[in-house]
């Protein structure tokens, strides 16, 4: 018997995502969104999702937008929750009280995910001090620098995308795919990766593995479409 993390379809890989789940969703603007996994999630009809992602409302992040349009999202944690000056669907739902939004600096998001994945109890950072984002948070002066305490941010599932995988879940990325996908992989209870190519163990040079398979529970091969979308 051969050990493998490969799932046949996006639908089987996301089948146990439940109502009220907290999700990390990888990618930024047009690169690295787990489009097939998000489409499968839309089909199974789960709701009240908390979505943690870089750009929540951008014309390249269509999977998240479709979930929002179907009113499946209860909460968004994102550095870029809103589009343009007049706002998109997330802005409208937030204004109507249908959806909660937490705006978070990108670097704070990265460090909170890193803390969750590494079992660190929190991060002290000067970022956000003197702004409303520090309201109500513990502060401490460390080596003469005043810092605010940010807590780890952990999720039930991470939906990520990579360029290449092997059956053990080792991943390698292409360009900006790496940005958030590699940071989110360690920070969820179950991490599901959709990938453009998949091979036997050894298909990726161990020197070039970016996300070691220990962080990845499921891999789905999703051949790229014409525009890699």
């Amino acid at each position: 018997m051969t050990f493998s993390k490969l799932y046949d379809t996006p639908a089987t890989a996301v089948a146990d995502i439940h109502d009220g789940a907290t999700l990390l969703i990888g990618g930024t603007t047009r690169s690295g969104e787990p489009t097939a996994l998000l489409a499968a999630l839309l089909t199974i009809g789960v709701r009240d999702l908390t979505c943690i992602c870089d750009f929540a409302d951008w014309d390249g992040s269509e999977g998240i937008l479709q979930l929002a349009q179907a009113e499946r999202i209860a909460r968004v944690i994102s550095p870029f929750p809103f589009v343009g000056e007049n706002g998109g669907v997330i802005h409208k739902q937030w204004r109507d009280g249908a959806l909660a939004v937490e705006v978070i600096p990108q670097g704070t998001l990265a460090e909170r995910l890193r803390a969750a994945g590494a079992g660190i109890g929190g991060v002290f950072t000067p970022v956000g001090l003197g702004t409303r984002l520090a309201d109500g948070k513990e502060t401490r002066t460390i080596n003469g620098v005043e810092c605010v305490l940010e807590s780890p941010l952990r999720a039930d599932f991470a939906l990520i995308r990579a360029d290449r995988a092997d059956a053990l879940g080792n991943l390698a990325y292409r360009g900006a795919q790496r940005g958030w996908n590699a940071v989110m992989a360690p920070a969820a209870r179950i991490t599901i990766a959709e990938v453009d190519t998949v091979g036997e163990p050894g298909a990726i040079d161990p020197e070039l593995v970016i996300t070691p398979g220990i962080y990845v529970n499921r891999v789905v091969y999703t051949p790229p479409t014409g525009d890699r979308g």
Binding site: P79, P81, F82, V103, P105, Q106, G107, T108, T131, L133
Partner: peptide, 21 residues
């Protein structure tokens, strides 16, 4: 630079990180 009060919300992106770092 991240929020116009009349909108009530805004995007922070990496601006706070850059401002501090």
């Amino acid at each position: 630079n991240w929020m116009l009060p009349d909108r009530g919300v805004g995007n922070i992106g990496g601006a706070m990180d850059l401002a501090a770092g």
